[in-house]
Design a protein around this nucleic acid. Sequence first.
DNA 1: CAGAAAATGATATATTATAACATTTCATCA
DNA 2: TGATGAAATGTTATAATATATCATTTTCTG
Lengths: 158, 158
Amino acid sequence: MSDLFPQKGHDHDRCVHSALAQAEKVCDVENARFTDMRRKVFTLIWQSHKAVTAYELLDALTADGLRVQPPTVYRALEFLTELGLVHRVESLNAYFGCDRPDCEHLGQYFICTDCGRVAEAVNEDMSNAVRKAARSVGFTIQATTVEIKGLCHDCATH
Amino acid sequence: MSDLFPQKGHDHDRCVHSALAQAEKVCDVENARFTDMRRKVFTLIWQSHKAVTAYELLDALTADGLRVQPPTVYRALEFLTELGLVHRVESLNAYFGCDRPDCEHLGQYFICTDCGRVAEAVNEDMSNAVRKAARSVGFTIQATTVEIKGLCHDCATH
DNA sequence: CAGAAAATGATATATTATAACATTTCATCA
DNA sequence: TGATGAAATGTTATAATATATCATTTTCTG
């Protein structure tokens, strides 16, 4: 069984640093500005592997002493999602950090209903099945949402 | 290419009547009450093959002369979705009628961004790919959301 | 450095959804 | 058949999510 969700005791600082480094690279390539506010929101999202809501981010920023209003958070989220640095979980109205922002992929998210973590799969079988199904009914794909809720291996076995 | 979205000039009354008949049957089997309000909401949803929001339904009921409040609509929607008579499109916060409420299926929805219609696929390849992907990472599925946005054949070719 | 463009601030409000308690309707069985 | 309890709906209030609009600040570019 391959890993998808990080190990319990993993070095999360590494996740954060790697994510920041990748984000900087993507912004550089796209000639987009990784401003303070965007970096703050991005870093907050990466505080865990869970999906967080816009208002949780707002509260966290407020707790940090900033006077931030909803549009500020939503703008940062729009920027980050458009660059593929974070993804939105439609069924949760929440956001989590992408760990492969540099490669194009159909998003397929596993969401643990116990621990709340979200992990992204890049699975060709699934992508192909979606594409094949679309082709067979003459449908032209613009975007796909694949969200799978259940128990991650840790939560199922402990 | 198999049909998925109904033909332009199809006999929609037939869809509605069939849906109502199936809904009655499901309610009967489940020993659930298909009350006036639930029937009204269900029928409104079936006025088209598009997904409609709770507040659009509320407005339609109001236009019909009823004094209805949001909880009434949400309760009807909860009832209908729990019985599998209607499905919720997470990425649209909207609902559409299921045309196969009697058989268990993983929902896979094709959503046309041009005409707004939603069609449900029951595709074993996709279901299997999802299950296989889950198994390979030790994930226990509780629910899946597969929403594919794009252009239906009609809209892509006309 | 001026001017334009991008980002953020600030205010207001739209949209989606649910909590809590009151009332009505309906099935059932004594 | 009518008392009664469960289910459904009514009613009021409010929570949670999201965006429109215009003002101000920051940053880029010439």
